[in-house]
Design a protein around this nucleic acid. Structure first.
Lengths: 240, 240
DNA sequence: CAACGTTATTGGTCTATGCCAATCTTGTGC
DNA sequence: GCACAAGATTGGCATAGACCAATAACGTTG
């Protein structure tokens, strides 16, 4: 045979490619045909259509709402993650960041938190849990642990406008060194509930350990970002 | 009713949770029961079992091989990504890195490459495509573009042991500033072929732009890492 | 005309089943 | 004993269909 047989390609992947081409250049929000209509049009089953659409949703190319339909998704947001905070960062890009306070309380450090903050197991820490929003849309879930008890923290946090601003301006805590760890994860029920995404959606999980000039840990945070809406940038300058 | 109805939970998610508990503490490589056996055991369909397993595979908890079975996967590798190269990073952690050269050739910069390297469209660039392996396992796919033509590059690359070492030691190109962009993506046929993963597996895609001390771009690279086996670390030190 | 309840539409989950493809096991023949 | 072929096992892909849940559209009613 002289004809080069193309690599065997799952049908759902062909469909995914066709859909991708079809939505190229469409305005975000534009509805695409229903799953049942696509199944008929492409002479396949709804299961196969859903598999194609599901991957496009996971990649942030499409979004879908039960009872409403499937639509072209808006582009990703680029988040420059440096020494800056989420809020400052978003504002620098002309976006409207917001926070929704889920809980703010004293807690006893579990083994994991204690280890990262260099505390004894069971030591008192401040636990701050928030949802981060941009332009009203929930995009990240964040739990921050700070060593010890910070007096009048809630009020100061609100006044300062951001966690880092409050730490610096009110408590004299200067962050001079951060270490971020980034990995992928899939959304479970909690993320589905808090971020309004679907089960199994890809996430970017960032763990941040911040230290002051003396190398003492001052913050340990776990942030969960929507993988379909975010992109991280980290800049590193050589000191040599 | 007094009983608090638990949040509606998909059956496949319950199964996923049970499987996760079942494999906790098992040795990597241990085979779990077959999909058909699990379907029968948990009184559900194979489709549902596959959905549960698929997510665990995507999270790097399980692996599977057609005709062989489904098994407990090895833990993630932490890849510390700073100004260092892939090879140096891995070696620093006591791992055995390797590269497989797919292609090394001169090419004309397309619009995207040209824009990032600050060149004219169609300018000559060196294109280096490699598979990165650790302990013999392919973990990343990388395409690097360098401005212009580098004499005897292939030989020097092999001798130096790493791209950055070659640039520095042989060509006198010193990287002083890098900007990494990290986002999620899903594996398509090419990644499946090159990395031996499955369709739709989560990936971490990193774009790196490296500059020399004068701010001139010297490298533009797109790296695709297996999301189930990697974790990135970035450290930032304040200069103030 | 506004408010409300009903109905149709659309995505979400799950079942049952068939066949294909890669791998492993077994058996046969030399 | 070894090599190879045949069969069994296991995951991969796809179909068809049922029912649920959220949303939107519509029509009735006050």
């Amino acid at each position: 045979m002289s004809t080069d047989v193309p690599a065997a390609m799952p049908k759902y992947y062909l469909l995914k490619t066709e859909l991708l081409a079809a939505i190229a250049g469409e305005q975000p929000g534009t509805l695409i045909p229903t799953e049942r209509a696509l199944a008929e049009k492409y002479k396949t089953s709804r299961t196969t259509v859903r598999q194609a659409i599901s991957e496009l949703v996971a990649e942030g190319k499409l979004g879908r709402i039960q009872g409403h339909g499937t639509f072209v998704a808006p582009p990703k947001i680029t988040h420059v993650r440096q020494l800056t905070s989420f809020s400052d960062d978003a504002r620098n890009q002309g976006l409207r960041p917001d926070s929704q306070l889920l809980s703010l309380a004293m807690a006893k450090a579990d083994i994991d938190v204690a280890a990262h903050l260099g505390l004894d197991d069971g030591a008192v820490v401040t636990r701050l849990e928030r949802i981060r929003l941009i332009d009203g849309e929930p995009l990240a879930h964040e739990i921050a642990y700070l060593p010890g008890k910070l007096p009048r923290f809630k009020a100061n946090l609100e006044k300062a406008g951001s966690l880092y601003a409050a730490l610096t301006d009110v408590y004299g805590i200067h962050i001079s060194d951060v270490e971020d760890t980034v990995e992928t994860a899939l959304a479970g029920p909690e993320e589905v509930r808090l971020l309004g995404i679907e089960m199994g959606a890809p996430l970017l999980v960032v763990h941040r350990l911040a230290r002051d000039a003396a190398g003492v840990p001052v913050e340990w945070t776990r942030s969960t970002f929507r993988g379909d809406r975010f992109r991280f940038v980290s800049r590193v300058k050589s000191t040599t």
